[in-house]
Design a protein around this nucleic acid. Structure first.
Length: 444
RNA sequence: GUCUCCAUCGUCUAGAGGUUAGGACAUCGCCCUUUCACGGCGAAAACAGGAGUUCAAUUCUCCUUGGAGAUGCCA
């Protein structure tokens, strides 16, 4: 049974990186008839906040990612204690009494002497008397897992094979002095207990995986969990960019008017050998998903590409789907504007522009006067707009470029410099409304 | 410092010893549009560097360089 998990910690809002983890795992599960588990990794009681946990549910539901099972680490402490005690009995974990400050000093010292900042296992040499002494002073220990210091190699679904020198890392802390367990440990216990078959996470977890393989083995010698580490996204970052697009939270992009389909497709396809298609449905994404398509190198992404994709998504919608989401009054309106909207805000904007009480933007007064004269003398028949445009061109052909003429006209009628085919706009608005818009601006 | 991952057009990538190094997005040009956009067509654009293995290296090995990550009583 294939079972994967998405395990965010509620210490902040879900960002694009989290979203990618969720989507990869979700698609992997669906593509293999497996189950997708949501696990709230809230072992860090200091930083975990209920509002962030709610944010996780909101974002997942917005993205339309549904989970088959849900767990919360803060509700599973009894299990961790049981498993922890087994390791204590086996002597694989050991109590340490150093303070954070002492450890910090030790690390700095090692770094300054160009040595790897690895914990020196001093606590291992403590006598029972010394331990008692600490305890009597009210100092509770934190516990470390005694790593087998050797070079290991493990299979990886994306990198094929990863090697790691366990001698280069400290024995991981599994239980903190306050009695809470760390993610490193709780995660292993949960993965075994829940029956996770594949752990798919970012390259930033490679060193964790190396240590956790040892913990998995200590917990369950038969553990056969498979790993896949995908490369992290590099975000093109410049001051301007970040200012323009805001932070990287899913919530931010939702607020900016991106559609969930856009975010899903973007995150599912970026860094894979598939093109950034315009297929936006889950079924297609699932059928196209494969870990083999994820490249080993980290993609650099431009956030503007996501907005480009959003435009493609919107213009691909037919009237029925568009109307369901954005309540478009008529098919005529949708067909008129659909090629010219980047976000739902633009849709609202155009709906407003096409309403009768809309007021455009003033341009040069003489131009507006002339335009009014021309429309007043234009015959109101079936093709009035063609005649109207032709007459204006004739009037200004020696003084203004075609582009300038149209830009001015667009501003007067729509308030914008670009948009749907101009004659189509006039046709939609009708003779009287167009004339009234020019008149209104002239009288302002 | 140590450990780990990675390296093909601007970007995402295909390529697994012999290819005119292919595609997609972006860019530019032309066409369509009486204008911007949309659309159609086309162009430009890449194997980081150095050794080695080989008849032959983008492809295999090593080194250098570059990028990313880890090195927490965070996850």
């Amino acid at each position: 049974m294939i079972k994967v998990r998405f395990a965010p910690s509620p210490t902040g809002f879900l960002h694009l990186g989290n979203g990618r983890a969720a989507i990869f795992n979700y698609l992997f599960a669906k593509a293999n008839n497996g189950r997708f588990v949501l696990r709230i990794d809230d072992t860090d009681t200091e930083r975990s906040k209920p509002e962030y946990e709610n944010g996780i549910y909101e974002d997942l539901s917005w993205l339309n990612i549904k989970y088959d099972e849900k767990y919360k680490q803060s509700e599973r402490k009894d299990l961790y204690i049981r498993e922890f005690n087994k390791l204590v009995e086996k002597g694989i974990v050991y109590p340490c009494y150093e303070t954070k400050e002492e450890l910090e000093i030790m690390r700095n010292y090692q770094l300054q002497n160009k040595k790897p900042p690895v914990y020196n296992r001093k606590a291992l040499t403590l006598t029972e008397e010394e331990k008692m002494e600490f305890e009597s002073r009210g100092i509770t220990p934190h516990w470390r897992f005694k790593l087998n210091r050797r070079k290991i190699q493990f299979a990886d679904l994306i990198h094929e094979s990863i090697k790691f020198d366990l001698g280069s890392v400290s024995d991981p802390v599994v239980r903190k002095a306050d009695g809470n367990f760390t993610y490193t440990f709780a995660s292993c216990v949960d993965d075994i207990d829940i029956g996770i078959s594949h752990i798919i996470r970012g390259d930033d977890h490679i060193s964790n995986t190396a240590s956790q393989i040892e913990i998995f083995k200590a917990l369950n010698p038969d553990s056969a969990i498979q790993f896949g580490h995908y490369p992290l996204i590099n975000f093109e970052q410049s001051g301007k960019m970040s200012k323009r697009f805001g932070d990287l939270s899913i919530k931010n992009f939702r607020d900016q008017g991106l559609e969930p389909e856009t975010v899903i497709t973007f995150l599912a396809k970026i860094g894979t050998s598939d093109p950034l298609t315009t297929c936006f449905d889950f079924e297609t994404l699932v059928s196209e998903f494969s870990l083999a398509k994820i490249s080993k190198s980290g993609p650099k992404i431009f956030l503007k590409d996501m907005f480009l994709l959003n435009r493609k998504f919107l213009s691909s919608l037919d009237f029925y789907s568009a109307n369901k989401r954005y309540n478009i009054e008529s098919e005529e309106i949708w067909n008129l504007i659909k090629e010219n909207v980047d976000t739902p805000k633009d849709i609202d904007n155009w709906k407003n522009i096409l309403k009768d009480d809309f007021i455009g933007m003033k341009v040069d007064t003489n131009f507006m006067k002339k335009v009014y004269e021309i429309i007043s003398s234009t015959v109101k028949n079936e093709n009035w707009y063609d005649a109207f445009i032709q007459n204006i061109r004739n009037e200004f052909q020696n003084t203004l470029s075609t582009k300038e003429i149209f830009t001015n006209l667009r501003l007067i009628v729509t308030g914008l410099e670009n948009g749907p085919h101009f004659a189509d706009i006039l046709k939609f608005l009708g003779f009287d409304e167009t004339k009234s818009r020019i008149e209104k601006l002239l009288n302002m």
